[in-house]
Design a protein around this nucleic acid. Structure first.
Lengths: 237, 237
DNA sequence: CCCGTTGTATGGTCTGACCATATTTGGTCT
DNA sequence: AGACCAAATATGGTCAGACCATACAACGGG
């Protein structure tokens, strides 16, 4: 669909994929519903079980199904909805292939965070989560612990927007650059400036100052990820 | 990595996946480089060929490899870099699962386009492509043709930002809601207002008016996708 | 009523075979 | 020597069947 297929014969697993998607739409299936077993699907669709498995692997990659062995209500291919892991893998791999630069990832983060924080400033949502993360960062004993709660802080901003898509993208970007974030904290040594940024962001959201919040986010990211910094290809190890 | 694995034994194809990723990073492989054949990989990694195939299917889904049968330099699993199709599939499927709403998708589009158009206004990039798309939309004889060039127009804006990640996300979102875009054009009947919006956007970019361009984009999307409109779950039939 | 054993359905994996395709190779004719 | 055609070969695509590991279900004994 995406590209002009040129008339090449579709592979069996692609056919399976299409049929499963049809079924999801036609039956209005949602997260929690079960798909038939692999053997049953293979028989229904007149393909080998391996083709069914490849299709399910694709769906699993896209965060649409989750497979469980054994027996019972939770066994088999269950429809889920975790777009996050797919996005994380996507960003991480393409960073590794040098098809994306760290700069592009950070810029995208800036875009999402500025958008989200402006919305949060208007709605006042997420202030409690931000507060909790701030306290935890103050108490953090290691860069790793600090980053963990830093992620929670920024995620709280994004999730306050109520948009699951931007929140999922944000989470994926954050996970993909996790190592780089820890390095940045180590490099800075002192987290006082970062926390000052955080509190400035929090205050702007609390006061409903959308423009101020967006500016604070920009300053914060510029401090943590200065332009022209190493780590462009993600091959730190 | 993404979730706490809890200590469950990794599946064979996951191991293959990890080893291939290691290899990409260690050898600095990039798009165009070839991976060993399926049989050879299976032997090297001490797994069955089916496990290798499942891993390759995942990588193919993520737009990292592209498989070609036959023989010669282009045959086998070749590293590529097409994050786009994965994102398109992701959005389309999660829309179908009602895990994302059309509103969230359109809002994300607005975010990316406002960001991109502001950048474009500062750099002046993409004006020629926008112009070409405008002319083509004037000459379009059907809603479908109009939408085709409308996509080109908006893509030109996003690609002018020079950020491949936001451009890829934008393209994916646009493809995922393609049907809805055609419906919107049909519903509006006349494309004059849309073209007027487009020309206003173009003029703002030309004049370096970032704020005006962003406002024009917001007005344009509000016209094409009014808040509270149908199509929320993507199950148009 | 509780608990352990057995049965069974499910995914996970491997092996081996065969097909489809496209390049490579090598021979043959001009 | 060059052009052309046929066979060999390497590669992914697919299938069938077997077996393992797991986890619930059903059953039976205490």
């Amino acid at each position: 669909m995406t590209d002009s297929d040129g008339g090449r014969r579709p592979r069996a697993f692609e056919e399976v994929l299409a049929r499963i998607e049809e079924r999801i739409l036609a039956d209005g299936l949602t997260a929690g519903d079960r798909l038939p077993g692999e053997r049953q699907l293979a028989e229904q669709l007149k393909v080998g079980r391996s083709s069914v498995r490849e299709a399910l692997r694709v769906l699993e990659t896209l965060g649409v199904v989750s497979s469980q062995a054994g027996r019972g209500p939770d066994a088999g291919a269950v429809l889920t909805s975790r777009p996050g892991s797919a996005l994380t893998d996507l960003v991480r791999l393409h960073l590794g292939l040098a098809a994306l630069s760290m700069r592009e990832v950070v810029d995208t983060r800036l875009m999402i965070e500025q958008w989200s924080v402006a919305r949060a400033a208007r709605s006042g949502a997420g202030l409690e989560e931000m507060d909790r993360a701030l306290t935890a960062m103050d108490a953090a004993a290691s860069p790793r612990a600090f980053v963990e709660h830093d992620v929670a802080f920024h995620l709280a901003i994004t999730e306050a927007s109520g948009n699951r898509l931007t929140a999922a993208i944000m989470r994926a970007l954050r996970e993909a650059v996790h190592r780089y974030a820890v390095d940045a904290v180590v490099r800075l040594g002192d987290t006082g400036d970062l926390q000052a940024d955080h509190r400035r962001i929090h205050a702007a959201v609390r006061d409903g100052d959308a423009a101020g919040a967006a500016a604070a986010i920009a300053d914060h990211l510029a401090r943590a990820y200065p332009p022209g910094q190493p780590g462009q290809s993600g091959q730190s190890g």
